[in-house]
Simulated scan of single mutants.
Amino acid sequence: MAKELSLSQSTVSRVWRAFGLQPHRSETFKLSTDPYFIDKVHDVVGLYLDPPERALVFCVDEKSQIQAVDRSQPVLPMTPEAPPRVTHDYIRAGTTTLFAALEVATGKVIGPLHRRHRAEGFKKFLTKPDREVPAGLDIHLVLDNYATHKTPAIKTWLLAHPRFHLRFTPTGSSWLNLVERWFAELTNKRIRRGVHKTVQALEKDIRTWIAAWNTDPKPYVLTMTADEILERLASYLNRIPDPED
């Protein structure tokens, strides 16, 4: 750019810094094509900001195919001069699936593990909050549109448990489900840094981390209203070139 504009590299760098431009970076995005996107954003965000009386709100999702990974060589521990180091190659020992329900008000997590990611596992998972939440309270679940959440067996179970209310996020909008932020913490602070020779060791590590989390849970607080979220998305849309131009 400096050569093209007949400027010095330092001048171009100053302009980039002044306007916060970072041309060396790129990020991904995805816009939902859900025809009820606006209605669902208002529904889910309204549930976060103003939950119903005598009800608990949970954000629910599955983290599937969590791999038990053993490194090909021992981990080099952290030193004053260097971070911990692991080999780039690894040995797979199997996978597990974590079903998690993040209680919005408190940040506590209900997180059973299952070896297979099936509708039967999700149905079994629903019995956990049903047992642990007091009988006098309704249960609102914020979750995505995955097929395991809508099978005939699940619909039949829900009919027999009318205090459960499913609130679906828009298609392609996992960012609206607060449990995804908790999954990121679990991945970065435990799974990615761990070494597990067996699936059983991985599952034990995850259960230990959940138990430690629940001793001092931290709720995720949404600070934007639905209208503010939609306005921000609209500003992104305005930056996308019209393909007909």
Rank of each mutant, 00 (worst) to 15 (best):
R116Q: 14
V86G: 00
T95H: 09
T95V: 12
Q67P: 07
A119W: 05
R118N: 01
K123H: 09
K128F: 14
V86H: 08
G94R: 14
R116G: 01
R131D: 15
G94A: 12
A101L: 05
T95G: 05
G121R: 06
T97E: 03
R118H: 08
R118A: 01
D70W: 12
V133A: 07
T97Q: 09
T97H: 09
Y90G: 08
R85N: 04
I66N: 00
G94P: 04
P74D: 00
L126T: 00
A119R: 10
Y90I: 08
V86D: 03
V75H: 01
F99Q: 07
I110Q: 15
F125V: 06
L76M: 10
R131P: 07
G107A: 09
D89Y: 13
L102P: 04
D89L: 14
P84E: 06
R116D: 14
V109M: 06
L102A: 11
I66G: 00
I66D: 01
L98F: 13
R131L: 12
E103M: 07
R131K: 11
P129A: 00
E132F: 12
T87K: 12
Q67E: 12
P112A: 06
V104G: 06
K123S: 13
K123C: 08
E81A: 14
A82I: 00
F122S: 05
P77D: 05
P74N: 00
E81K: 10
I91S: 01
E132H: 13
F99P: 12
M78I: 03
F122H: 06
V133Y: 10
Q73E: 15
P74I: 04
T96M: 08
Q67R: 10
A82N: 09
K108S: 13
T106D: 02
Y90C: 07
H88N: 07
L126S: 03
Y90Q: 05
F99W: 11
K124V: 09
A93F: 02
P83D: 02
D130Q: 14
A93M: 07
K108T: 15
A82R: 10
E120N: 04
A82D: 02
V69Q: 07
G111A: 15
